[in-house]
Structure formats: structure tokens, C-alpha cells
Design a protein around this nucleic acid. Sequence first.
DNA 1: CTGTTAGCGCTTTCAC
DNA 2: GTGAAAGCGCTAACAG
Lengths: 356, 356
Amino acid sequence: MKPATIRDVARRADVSVASVSRVLTGAGPVTDATRKRVMEAVEALQYVPHSGARSLSTSKTSTVGVILPDLYGEYFSELIRGMDLAARALGYHLIVSSSHDDAEEASAAIRSMRGRVDGLIVLSPHLGAANLAGSLAGRLPVLLMNAGADAGRPSIVVDNHGGAVAAVEHLIATGRRRIAHIAGPTGNLEAEARLAGYLEAMAAAGLPTTVVDGAFTKASGHEAGVQLAAMATRPDGVFAANDNMAIGAMLALQEAGVRVPEDLAVVGFDDVPLAGLVHPGLTTLRINIAEMGRSALERLVKLIQSAGAADADAACEVVRPQLVVRPSTNPATQNPTRASRASAAAAVPLPEGENP
Amino acid sequence: MKPATIRDVARRADVSVASVSRVLTGAGPVTDATRKRVMEAVEALQYVPHSGARSLSTSKTSTVGVILPDLYGEYFSELIRGMDLAARALGYHLIVSSSHDDAEEASAAIRSMRGRVDGLIVLSPHLGAANLAGSLAGRLPVLLMNAGADAGRPSIVVDNHGGAVAAVEHLIATGRRRIAHIAGPTGNLEAEARLAGYLEAMAAAGLPTTVVDGAFTKASGHEAGVQLAAMATRPDGVFAANDNMAIGAMLALQEAGVRVPEDLAVVGFDDVPLAGLVHPGLTTLRINIAEMGRSALERLVKLIQSAGAADADAACEVVRPQLVVRPSTNPATQNPTRASRASAAAAVPLPEGENP
DNA sequence: CTGTTAGCGCTTTCAC
DNA sequence: GTGAAAGCGCTAACAG
């Protein structure tokens, strides 16, 4: 009734367990005759190696853990997709663990990974989590993402500050002067860097600033949009800390009769797939999210495989977002509506995939 | 240098490993004094139990595997989110494995799960995969999703046929008569059920049918839209086998100068978050995807915990999609643009979540 | 080339 | 209440 073990196979093939192991792992010398007998027994018994046992024996799990704050929305799904792709290619499994809002939970999640994974990718937008990962992971290789530019630890970060500056400069370049910012949640390092970039760029241009609070959600963006629309001297441009909020704000503005971009131009951040599909298409700072995920996983595996090597790769890779101009700031870059698709085609790549 | 083991703790606390185990697992009688000594040692050594070893010993991994055909797009990310939520609540981990287009790959993925998980959720939109899962999984509990109504095996399926009929009937009810269908990929059970529903409903109404091929992707929907727009007697309604294609088709139609819904009404399937945000909002058949994922995981865990029980839950749960009417078929249900948000609010819930 | 054996780190009877 | 010892299923020396 219970699944066959390597001993059952050995017994049946009338060889030692060692030989079975050799045949199955492909390591070590084996006679063709032996191999054949083993394979037959494997077949007959429907034997499948127990990877847990193998892991314990080799102290390698071929699995990496991904610790996320949340699993909502396109940003993270894209990220995981990229990681999964790379993991498959490298023969690794992916174990995901999300919804860790506070450091406490994340901490528990990380400890529970010991003996289960060979390494960890930790997304820690909150300050505490970064240290956390280091202290708790023990000797486990860890790759940090979206944390501040934490020196001395392998990590990948987005140039949030630079992106924010680019966003503001683009708005200014298109003639906007009263530019507001919809900020992300306080305590979130990425949100804070984007806010800082906004403030700096505005100061550099000698323009007054307006900041509305948000929480990275579409709903919070919507609220912010309502506020913007109701302002006495309404802004003529807004830079939202992410696409989600930008989209929420656009909806609110349009509901209030504010025309985008004529009355008010909107810029987001991330370039989630949705950004190119809303109406009007959203100008944003593109991060190739899936690609970043792929890169993260590959680096982690490299880290794992060279574990202990002195030339530890403790670099902090910086991903620079790229400005993608769409109709939400520039009417000339029309949405693909009743118009030639030519101009929009480049800016609005359609994500693929067979989804029911 | 290496992480501490239970023996290190035992030595340090000057007790047996058994006692350490008892303290840590909370099982068995222990003196307060002993417990205290153990905890101190644990603290001092930064000891974290090795879950792999524990798994081998208890033959429980507290992990479930999810086998997916692909990880692209909102459908699957929503699904995983629901599963992850339930898994956390039940103390389980989630290991995801995707991009298994053919049965061969899925097969390999499934076997590689042995000894790594306590059960499997298999999404097998292709015929072969379902059987496969059964035969390969051995004594592993398996929950099938999105396979045909496979009797005699625990599963969750969407009532694709019924949904398709509802879609067509809605189009007919709004006065459409030349109703086309954009089909999903052949060989995909869900796509085929939706096609069958369309054909049946049309036949029942005595209307002629038009079927355009698609592949569940936005791009294929776009192509289909181009074809529809170019037809000699253009349809005045179209039912796409999923939202992705419906959205792609809408874009193509609008580019061709066809007005939606005035000239041509569009209905999708799934109600992915995007459906409520495109312009015009897409009428579709709503499946609460995350909820379905949650339900799937909970059922699997129940299956695991009652493993071997005679009253095996081999039921096939049927999820009935619900028609959500939006402007793509009914101009009266306006998009939230320059209009009261009241009517649209119910139909266009904004998904939440903090995403950078 | 093959078999024997000692673990991997932990849980769990079973005596004491 | 506590400890010694026997595995969980597999791999990897080490002898033959």
C-alpha cells in the first residue's frame, strides 16, 4: 500500500541499495546488466525517489523560498512568474510565502524555511525586515529585493529615486507646473524613495509641492484622485508612487469630470501590464518585473552554488526604470482606439499566456 | 559555523535529545526546569529545527504542491493568492510549479514532488493530465481543478457550459442576433465546454453560429477582433471564451472603428480584475477565482488529514459563474467616466493590496 | 563494479 | 519525567 522505497527496489532487482542509488542518480559506475535490472524493478514497483530523504542526505533541497509581503496584484504575480521560469530552467523548486505584513510574521516565515530550502529571496519593503533576514537566516544564502540599498548584502533594488525624478521632469517638460504626488504607505522604503525623488525634483525646478497620502492600492489612489479633483487650485499634473494608485486616481478624476491628460496629466510607476490597457494609457516608469524576478533567482542560485566562497557576491544590483510615455501625459501618443495602432503598439505590449 | 542541531541543544542543556524534542514539539511531559534549560540553550544557540529532517521522521511535510500549466496573467495569480491565504491559515506551505504545457512535463513535475509535499492540487485543462495525476501521484492526495467533470476523484470544476449558455442568452436578451464566438485553444477542456455551451444555446435559439479560433491570449483575441470587424455581415455580438480574448477583441474592434457596445456587444468569461477597468467595462461571467483557490486548498488539506478514511470525499464541486453586466453589452451600465459611480461601483470592485 | 555501513536531523516507542 | 535507541529513505564513503 505504501509507496516503494529504494530497498524494495534493491530487493526486487537483487542488488544493493547502493547500486540502485547509483543507477538513479547517474553517479558512479554500474554495469549495463545491473542498470537494466534496477530499471525494471523501478518500473514494476512504480518507484519514485523520496526527495525529502534525498535532501536530508545530501543537504541540498533544490528549492528556494520566496518571502513576500503580499501576493496581491500584477506586480508580484509578474515577479513570481519570472522566478518560476528561472527556477525551472535551473532545476529548482519554488516555495512561496506571502502576506507578511509585519516583521514578526516575516520572521516566523523565514525560520520555518530552514531545512526546506537552499536559499531565500526576501522582499522587504519595510526597514526592519532587511536586518531580520540577515539575523534569522543563519548560514542560508539570502537575496534581498526592494529593500533600501542595503550595503554588504546581495540585493537587487530599483532606482526609485531616479525614477521619481524622471517622472517629475517629464511632467515639467510637457508644460505642467502644479504637480502633485500621491505617496505610498509610510514606512515603505520604495514609497519613501519615490517621494524623496519627487520633492527633490520639484525643489530643483523651484516648484511648490503637494503630497496626498496613499497606500499603493487602487482604492487609495481613487481617494487621492477625489481629493485632487476637489482642490481649490487643482494641480495640472500628478505623479503617483505606483501604477495602481495612478489608475485609481485617473478613474476618480474622470468621474469628477477632469479630463486626462488635457486638464491633468498622470504618471505612474512600475508599468504593470494593466498600465498600457487602461484609458487613457498610463505614462509610467517601466520596470521589467518578470525579468527582475528571473535575475534574482539566478543570482540566488549562483550564491547557493558558490556557498562559502570568499569572493562572495555582495553587490547591490540597481535596476533603472525607464520612462514610457503614453496618452495620460501626452495626447499625441494615442490609445489604440479608433486610430492607427502603430504608435501605441510599441508602448502597449500585450502580455501573453493561456489563461482560462 | 554550521547551524546548531538538536544534539547541540541537548548537550548544552545537559538533557537528552528526546527531551529537547518534547519541549519543542510541545508533546509529552516535561518538567518546568527542563523546559527552561532547553529554551535557554535554544536561545543561546539560535537553534531552529530542521523541517526537512522533521518531515522525514513524521512523514508529513506540511506542504502542498500546486501544478499549473502556466503562471501568466491575472487568472492564475488570483488563484495562487487564494491558495496561499488558506495555506497560511492552516499552517501549510505552498510549492508552485508551472509552465507545464504538455503532459510529459507535468508528469515529471508531479513525480518530483514525492517526499516534498503531502498533497497536490493539479490544474489540468488538458485531457491527459487528469489521468496522469491520478496514476502518478501514488498514494498522494490529489485535488483536480479545471479538468472535465472527472468523476470519482476529488475535484473542483467551473460550470463552463452553463456559463456559456448564460452569456449567449444575455446577448440574445439585449437584442443581438448575429452572435459570434471566439474559441479557446483546442484540446483545452474548459475552452471546449464553453464552445459547446455557445453552440447549444445558439441552436436552441435557432440562430446561425460563427466561430473564430483563439488561444486564450489577448493577442489571439485581438486577431479574432480584426477578423470579426472585417466580416461581410458583421456580427452584432460576440462571446469570447475568456476575458483576455474579449479585451483583445474589443481593442481590435475599436481600432477598426466598430463601436462597443453600440455596433457590437462583447461578453467575456472569468471576470479577471482587469475586466472592470477596461473601457468600456466588460460584461463577463464572474468566477471568484481567489475564493476557488482557497476552497481548493482547504479541501486538499481535509483530504490529507483524513487520508485513508473510507468516506473519501471524491465529490466534484461545481462552481457556477455569475453574469456581471457592464457597458460592453449594455450602455446603460456606464463606466465610471464623467458619470455617477453609483451604478458601476457594484460591478467594478477595485482589488486591493499594497503593491509597489 | 558492487555491497556494507554509517550517517543526514529529528521524532518516537519503550524501558527505566 | 527522562533517556537510549530504532528508524524515516536516501546518499556516500569505504572496503571488497
